[in-house]
């Protein structure tokens, strides 16, 4: 078990190093000299000369040898220094990201959780009933094929504009300040529902399809057939199949994370929801490279952490992994 997690940790560390390296490499070696673009963009801002001298030279240090530049980049990073945002000048990128992260998580995590649980449940039911299966399955396929952002737009238009049931932009009303009052919380939830729904529904389709296929596969496994030969009820057979089918769905969670993150980013853009995705959009529209890089790094870190948690969970729920790496007990 320790070995298993150790191995995973090793891969994730490499991944992190790889991501940071890309982050360092790309602005330096892309065509079009992005660093000059960056410097010229800073030039227009107040107190720019000071910034350019104090920060940009330090950040890029183009006069130093390459390996020194790389090393210093790491040093700055480990101090939590991701540069200064142009768009939110003079806010440090780190600060901007720290403010955005809660908004992203508050939509993302419940959406993943709810869709995973509901999707697995519905998929399991579909695997049981032919009729239901043949009507639900096409629906699930359409759902997974829907771009998150388009479902978001449709929901915003249908529920937000036509029915006027929900607000379609921002995380809370303009007149409010974040505080722990009932009024704020209700307003927050009101804004939260549509982004949550569009994320949740698309994911739901994928989980349901996965679960349905896995259950059908498990029901054809030898152990299911043998249980049947010994007269076990369908209830017991299904219970076993369900449990074993859930295991790959947990791994699926890790595998799907990339697409889910993409969905989150675009959904935030649709609803102007002030999370990382929205921040990223601002960075892109304003050619704010420090901001883009910071968002990239944090997305990677988030995904790495999530992967690690999934691995950890997997060790606890699948005895095969637990024993395969502990060499007996």
């Amino acid at each position: 078990m320790g070995r298993y997690l150790g191995r995973k940790f090793f891969i994730y560390s490499l991944t992190f190093i790889f991501a940071v390296t890309i982050n360092w490499l790309i602005p330096r070696f892309m065509p079009g000299d992005p660093i000059m673009v960056l410097i010229s963009r800073f030039a227009g801002l107040p107190e720019a000369t000071k910034v350019i001298h104090s920060y940009l030279t330090k950040a890029f240090q183009l006069d130093l040898p390459i390996w020194r530049q790389y090393l210093n980049f790491w040093k700055a990073l480990l101090r939590g220094d991701l540069g200064i945002s142009i768009y939110l000048y003079p806010k440090p990128v780190m600060e901007a990201i720290a403010e955005a992260i809660p908004y992203t998580l508050v939509v993302l995590l419940p959406a993943i959780l709810v869709s995973w649980i509901l999707g697995n449940g519905i998929g399991a039911i579909a695997a049981r009933r032919r009729r239901l299966d043949s009507t639900l399955l096409p629906l699930f396929y359409i759902l997974t094929a829907t771009p998150y952002l388009w479902l978001g737009i449709l929901l915003a238009w249908g529920l937000g504009v036509v029915l006027r049931a929900f607000p379609i932009a921002g995380a809370y009303g303009f007149s409010l300040q974040p505080e722990l009052s009932l009024r704020f919380i209700l307003d927050f939830l009101h804004h939260w529902i549509l982004p949550f729904l569009s994320l949740c529904l698309v994911m739901l389709g994928g989980w349901a399809i996965g679960m349905r296929n896995m259950i059908i596969y498990e029901l054809e496994a030898n152990y299911s057939r043998y249980l049947e030969s010994l007269g076990a009820s369908q209830r017991l057979i299904r219970r076993y199949a369900f449990r074993n089918a859930v295991l790959p769905q947990v791994t699926g969670l890790a595998l799907q994370l990339g697409t889910i993150v993409a969905g989150q980013v675009t959904t935030e853009v649709v609803f102007s929801y002030p999370g990382i995705g929205y921040l990223l959009l601002q960075g892109i529209l304003n050619q704010d490279y420090f901001l883009i890089q910071g968002c990239f790094l944090f997305i990677v870190i988030g995904v790495l952490l999530a992967n690690f948690f999934v691995d950890l969970a997997y060790v606890f729920i699948d005895p095969r992994v637990r024993y395969a790496y502990s060499g007996g007990r």
Partner: peptide, 17 residues
């Protein structure tokens, strides 16, 4: 209860988890 079977695939006839 009354008629039983040890299947040809006995080695993987048990739920692995």
């Amino acid at each position: 209860r009354r008629i039983s079977l040890i299947p040809q695939y006995a080695m993987d006839a048990l739920n692995p988890t």
